[in-house]
Amino acid sequence: MLYIKCPYCGLRAQKEFSYGGDATVKRPNINEEVSSEDWDNFVYMRKSPRGKHIELWQHIAGCRQWIKVQRDTATHEIFQTAKVTEEIR
């Protein structure tokens, strides 16, 4: 079970979180034209990297905040966590 540092609550067990997928995907702006290709990329296309991956988790059994987690998909090592408004580099 992973040990995830919520930027609001601190280190908590994975049990308290739910997974939210790739955090680097940006939704096309609302009320703006978007090409079919860009839209399909946003809805369907995801990378499945082996290694570092920035992803979203929600602290559903805690503060209910969505957070960013940079995790190694092979080893589960977590390098960094951040608020969604913060950058992970």
Binding site: S18, G20, Q58, V84, T85
Partner: peptide, 17 residues
């Protein structure tokens, strides 16, 4: 009920803060 709440929170916190 639970999914919809998470869904709303997702858009408010991430997409349209």
């Amino acid at each position: 009920a639970a999914n919809v709440l998470s869904h709303l929170e997702y858009y408010l916190q991430i997409v349209w803060p």
